[in-house]
Design a binder for these strands. Structure first.
Length: 576
DNA sequence: GTAGGGTTAG
């Protein structure tokens, strides 16, 4: 038997499999090895042997549970994982003593749900899992938890986790921590990470990957550093993935030099290592070094992929390297990487920001992939910057056609009109906004003070020190007005009076966070803020002035990049 | 006469 197993292990081609199949058939041993053969074929890395498995399966008169398992497992790995669910359904509808789903069947079917983001189906299998009596199977419960998280039901995932109580192990924690981190709930991910520690679990490389990712998102420097120390202490820094996550964490917490130190010391850099570092430099506006690294990776025998190009384009964007970026974009196809919608979006941004609106629009017109909402929004932003109302109207129409109901799109258009003093049109846009179900993504900012992350919403008054913060902002306002500051009220969204507009601007979340930093972070130490959206023009102006008047370095990470404010100017050189 | 399932970076 072991002999057949090892033969099977060494079958890599269809002809080998067929030979083995023929041999087993002639010796009458095939029925004893069928499931293994099916599994081997169904899970062949390139999917090339799956059709053969399906063929053999179809010609099996009464397939066993194991035969089904092999096929479901294989189908779950294909680009169309729902086929695995169809097969599972077929199996569970006609149960016999020999074909009853077992824990593995459920596990493979759940994998398919995770890949297909099929939440209702996952819930259905969940109830079957319970009915079949697999409720105590820790591995299966972890799979279940993972599916809920991946399919977007994080509360469902938490519930499964809490119900596992004593049976959960480090992998269950990992699934939850990673799920929360990837599901945009990084604070909860960190909470769970800390809880795992306090419950005596020993974090492994997977645990720290999830936790580091959460720190990246939150800009939680203190926690990130602690994790990195732990990683080094445990020797987990031999793991490339962990190093990549740490590079990303340091870069996103504002310490691009520290990120680079780690990058340099990774001896077996993977493609992701290079991409992460290039993206890090791009975010920090260091376009030159990013491009150098991009060139260098080729010399190290690492071939740039579509993410590398995106990172490099992004670097050109933020550094204003318009011609270089455009050249890079045009060279992609020749080097075997065909641009996707993100690359097109990036080059449209590059040209649009540089004021080459017609060139940007021409790219959109001629591109072979369908432009997405983000791309149109990028172009609309450029129209706003350069006051091109005609193009803004065309682009807005596209956005409306695509069903965009984002507040920002309408505001941009309205601001284009406002800048041209076309108040009638401004009113028309505002009217259109009232008649639609407009979605406004609430802006918020984080700042870390003594290891604690504080979160602020626009106009937030829920922070314990909010009165002091607002008082500080009054003072700031008074002092910056002496420098000739005038609020840029066209960034304000709603139809409100001038004074209210100014107030609404005054209390943008990033300003609250900076003010909180001013009152709570000791003299001279820099203030770090992370914002979920792009920083607004008024905040940018105000923070520049604050950095000068209060002699503070202020570092703001917005949705797109870092802004490092020092002595009255910003590292983005006002190009953003 | 039968192995195989959970968590993983840009």
């Amino acid at each position: 038997m072991a002999f057949v197993d090892s033969l099977l292990q060494n079958c890599h081609s269809l002809s080998h499999i067929k030979q083995l199949h023929a041999h087993l058939t002639t010796t009458g041993l095939f029925p004893f090895h069928r499931s293994k053969l099916l599994d081997r074929c169904a899970t062949s890395p390139s999917l090339s042997l799956l059709p053969y498995a399906a063929f053999v399966f179809r010609h099996t008169p009464s397939p066993s549970t194991n035969d089904y398992n092999a096929i479901i497992r294989g189908l779950a790995l294909t680009p169309t994982p729902t086929r695995a669910l169809t097969c599972y359904l077929h199996m569970s509808r006609a149960p016999t003593t020999t074909t009853r789903p077992d824990a593995l069947t459920c596990s493979f079917a759940l994998k398919a749900c995770a890949r297909a983001l099929a939440l209702p189906e996952a819930a259905q299998i969940h109830s079957q899992v319970t009915r079949f009596g697999f409720g105590l199977d820790a591995l299966l419960q972890t799979t279940l938890l993972d599916v809920y998280a991946k399919a977007g039901d994080l509360d469902g995932a938490r519930k499964v986790f809490e119900e596992m109580t004593s049976r959960r192990d480090i992998a269950s924690w990992n699934a939850l921590i990673a799920g929360l981190a990837q599901g945009n709930r990084p604070s909860e991910a960190l909470e769970m990470f800390k809880r795992a520690g306090s419950e005596g679990l020993r974090a492994n490389e997977v645990t720290v990957l999830g936790a580091l990712s959460a720190c990246s998102q939150l800009g939680a420097t203190r926690e990130g550093e602690k994790i990195w120390e732990y990683v080094r202490g445990e020797g987990l820094d031999l793991n490339v993935q962990v190093c990549n996550a740490a590079i990303d964490m340091y870069a996103k917490c504002g310490f691009v030099d520290k990120a680079y130190q780690i990058f340099e010391r990774v001896c077996r850099k993977s493609l992701v290592t290079w991409n992460t570092m290039i993206m890090a430099l791009a975010m920090h506006g260091d376009g030159r070094r990013a491009m150098e690294l991009f060139e260098e990776m080729g010399r190290f025998g690492v071939c740039p992929d579509s993410v590398s190009y995106l990172a490099a384009l992004c670097a050109c964007n933020h550094a204003g390297l318009v011609d270089e970026g455009f050249r890079l974009f045009n060279s992609m196809a020749g080097r075997g990487v065909s641009p996707n919608v993100k690359h097109y979006g990036s080059v449209v941004d590059l040209l649009g920001r540089a004021g080459r609106l017609e060139d940007a629009f021409e790219i959109v017109r001629s591109m072979p992939v369908v432009p997405d909402v983000v791309l149109w929004q990028t172009l609309l932003g450029a129209c706003k910057t350069y006051g091109n109302a005609d193009m803004a109207e065309q682009v807005s129409r596209k956005l409306v056609e695509m069903g965009s109901n984002s507040c920002g799109d309408f505001v941009l258009l309205s601001n284009v009109y406002a800048a041209l003093e076309r108040w009638g049109d401004v009113g028309r846009v505002r009217e259109a906004m009232k008649n639609r179900d407009i979605k406004k993504i609430p802006g918020f900012s984080y700042t870390e003070v003594e290891g604690v992350v504080h979160k602020f919403l626009n106009g937030d008054q829920s922070h314990p020190s909010w009165r002091e913060i607002y008082r500080k902002l009054e003072e700031v306002r008074f002092r910056i007005e002496a420098y000739g500051y005038v609020p840029e009220t066209n960034y304000v969204l709603h139809d409100i009076g001038q004074e209210d507009k100014e107030n609404a601007l005054c209390y943008h979340s990033e300003k609250l966070a900076v003010a909180f930093g001013l009152i709570s972070i000791s003299d001279r130490a820099s203030i770090q803020v992370i914002k979920n959206l792009r920083i607004c023009g008024d905040c940018h102006t105000v923070i520049k002035l604050i950095s000068k008047i209060y002699e503070r370095e202020i570092i703001v990470r917005d949705r797109a990049r870092f802004h490092r404010f020092k002595q009255g100017s910003c590292s983005c050189r006002d190009y953003w």
